[in-house]
Nucleic acid binder design. Structure first.
Lengths: 217, 217
DNA sequence: ACCGCAGTCGAACGATCGTTCGGTCGGCCG
DNA sequence: CGGCCGACCGAACGATCGTTCGACTGCGGT
């Protein structure tokens, strides 16, 4: 990476002595790391970047953290715990397939927003290390659960007939997951976002019911 | 990157002598590079990886290309040319806002599929170098054009009323762009894919018209 | 007053990165 | 046939990477 860095958004280290024992608990460092990982990309982020964002030197940073990959793993675990937690909720296991699917989608939006940095990290993995491949596998499990629910709802006639439920499931997951690429807390309230995603996914953008210029390619 | 690499999908170099002048034209090397960039991620990809995928040594590779960033730039230009080409098509500049928007979305799917590796690269940029930031700026222009069209269509009453057109535009772009995360040529025909994305975006997944359990958060 | 220890740091480790250089090989043109 | 030149390669460059090490500091407990 020869090019210059984007304007560094972090890194101010209080003037001289850092006597205050700021108690760097592991979870807060994971949060800092996840944020910087997302700004620069995991591979482009150096331990120097991370320690500077935490306000200490690289060697001090290692006193609190096992290493770069351990930070990644911790962040990914937090994301996956949030996502799989949804599948255990009562509303995700009872009712019609469509009702369950719709609940999961809405909750998935909430978890995405609540754990934004960690989920973002999860959705950008490439699988270069064993840790990344493990997380990718878990993520595939989650997507498979949704795909299975879409298939059920489609078989039950609860979804518009016609095309491939597997493709629909991919598009649905893609729609929800794309949030991490632009959503930032504050601008749009979470419940509004949930309503928008739900409407877009299940009712579409069009004004009238079935009309449009409904042509086929 | 201390971890092991994912199973290397390329790199066989014909046994000994490579006397055949395989004519490594620049554009084919860009294609190879884009593919490997997407597999490993740009930063995690070494010039050794690239040259091995091309079937020559690292130093030979430099005889054909200017450097890593030049390869990235070439691939991104190809992606951006394809996308911006859509905006110049007649059907993208005449007709109602909704008709124009719908045409652009369908064509965008086709370009995404036709230039899959290059567009994928574009959609994963982090902005660490000047080249990346330039491409990100161009991409923002494209998204802004779509957002503006969504706003027009919404103001003309062609879209379901209620919520934020800016959010709708983000969701629409996110839905289309998410294709690069799973679509691979062969499985699903392109025209089917176009129809699916169009239907999902504008009509939604639901079976009946406005019904569902249409609750709000 | 003393000690232990968590916290911090500068310096350095080997590895790998993108890139460059000097030189060899062999087909092609004159 | 002689020489040129594009294709190719091994070796090495300085820079930066993740990580380790030894030493210093100052607070809390005894």
């Amino acid at each position: 990476m020869t090019g210059t860095r984007p304007p560094a958004p972090e890194g101010e280290r209080p003037t001289a002595t850092r006597r205050a024992r700021p108690a760097y608990d592991p979870s807060s460092l994971v949060e800092v790391a996840a944020r910087v990982f997302n700004e620069r990309g995991y591979d482009a982020t150096s331990m120097e970047d991370l320690s500077a964002a935490a306000g200490i030197t690289k060697s001090s940073f290692y006193h609190h953290v096992r290493g770069k990959e351990a930070l990644l793993r911790a962040a990914l675990e937090r994301a996956l715990d949030g996502l799989f937690g949804i599948l255990d909720e009562p509303a995700a296991t009872t009712g019609t397939p469509l009702a369950r699917l719709r609940h999961i989608v809405r909750r998935q939006v909430e978890v995405l927003v609540g754990e934004l940095p960690h989920v973002t990290l999860l959705l950008r993995l490439r699988g270069n290390t064993e840790t990344e491949r493990w997380a990718l596998g878990r993520r595939r499990e989650f997507d498979a659960a949704i795909a299975s629910l879409v298939r059920e709802a489609s078989a039950a006639g609860e979804l518009r007939a016609g095309l491939d439920p597997a493709v629909d499931a991919r598009l649905l997951s893609g729609l929800v997951n794309s949030l991490v690429e632009w959503y930032r807390p504050g601008r749009v309230p979470v419940d509004e976002l949930v309503a928008e995603v739900d409407r877009m996914a299940f009712e579409g953008l069009l004004a009238q019911g079935p009309a449009g210029d409904g042509r086929r390619a």
